[in-house]
């Protein structure tokens, strides 16, 4: 397609220390993303989606046990940078993030327009006037009227607060925005409005984004490509068409079948419980819940099998077919 890679992640791991042992939250993840693309990351609660996002911007908690692999953004490997360099060179200006639940932690005593403008003043040394001007412009872009600038968070609805948080992430014109469950606390109609706004931003600004959600239907609303995570690993990745229309991994198939549809059969579900990431199941991590489990699934880890260019699946069912 002639587009260049914006992001390439290779062999990324992020483990935490915990009382129960080492949590393997992100375990050998490799992904690439092109400029202008939206990559959806889907998977059940606790599978490591937010951890992957944090690993991409090297936002690590103090109990990090292991952080390795590479995350090359815009030609720079974030894993190798020290904290100071990440802050100066990467966060906000190259990659910004809308954290899960961020709309609930807006500062209650600061006017929202100031909060949107703040990164420009703090990280880019812009003057207040300049920062406010840009903030007003970005707020307009995300569908907020001018009078919202001087309001406080409690004077805004959930949907408006989420727009504020998104505006803040856009203020330094980053190349990539990571959105972690940006609409999960909102009503469907407000969710639809926010998704439409994100689609417009993508179209008009050519914005690249990583969209994280546990809801694969919601992911389909924006994603060009979809990566399905299970127990710290990416088990299938491909174009939205490939993953949604011919899901190969049994977990992807279950996730899609679990979506309640208005018209069509009753939803299915993924049986059993999510695994404990301090001691994930041996072999294929999905094997205790997989309807197609075979003997070798229990003890040997399946390789990542390329189905087609850009589409791969980590499952023994396809080991024979690879070309």
């Amino acid at each position: 397609m002639g587009q260049s890679n914006l992001l390439s992640i290779d062999g990324l791991r992020l483990y935490y220390r915990s009382a129960r042992g080492v949590v393997r939250a992100v375990d050998n993840v490799s992904l690439t993303m092109r400029v202008g693309e939206a990559l959806g990351i889907v998977g059940e609660s606790g599978c490591g989606k937010s951890s992957l996002a944090n690993a991409i911007i090297k936002f690590l908690p103090p109990n990090t046990e292991l952080y390795e692999g590479s995350v090359v953004i815009d030609g720079v490997d974030v894993v190798k940078l020290d904290e100071d360099e990440v802050r100066r060179r990467i966060r906000w200006r190259v990659v910004s993030m809308v954290f899960q639940g961020a709309m609930n932690i807006l500062n209650p005593v600061i006017r929202v327009g100031f909060q949107v403008a703040e990164p420009l003043i703090v990280h880019a040394g812009a003057s207040r006037e300049e920062a406010f001007r840009v903030a007003r412009e970005v707020m307009r872009r995300v569908g907020l009227s001018d009078d919202v600038f001087n309001r406080y968070p409690h004077e805004l609805s959930g949907g408006m607060k989420q727009r504020i948080v998104i505006a803040t992430a856009l203020i330094m014109s980053p190349k990539l925005v990571i959105l972690d469950e940006p609409t999960s606390a909102l009503d469907v109609s407000i969710q639809a409005q926010i998704m439409n706004m994100l689609k417009r931003l993508k179209r008009e600004l050519g914005l690249s984004m990583i969209f994280i959600t546990h809801d694969i239907a919601l992911a389909s609303d924006i994603s060009d490509r979809i990566a399905v995570m299970y127990a710290g690993e990416v088990v299938e990745v491909g174009s939205a068409e490939q993953v949604l229309l011919s899901p190969h991994h049994p977990y992807t198939q279950k996730l899609i079948a679990a979506t309640p549809r208005l018209r069509g059969p009753k939803p299915d579900f993924v049986p059993g419980q999510p695994p404990d990431l301090t001691s994930p199941p041996s072999g294929c991590r999905f094997h205790p819940r997989c309807p197609y489990v075979m003997e070798k699934c229990r003890h040997s880890e399946p390789p990542s099998i390329v189905v087609k260019d850009g589409w791969s699946v980590k499952c023994w069912l396809y080991a024979g077919e690879a070309g």
Partner: peptide, 14 residues
Amino acid sequence: PEPDPANRFRERKS
């Protein structure tokens, strides 16, 4: 929303 790859090319009604 339903899981449909065509969703991304159209606006959702709301």
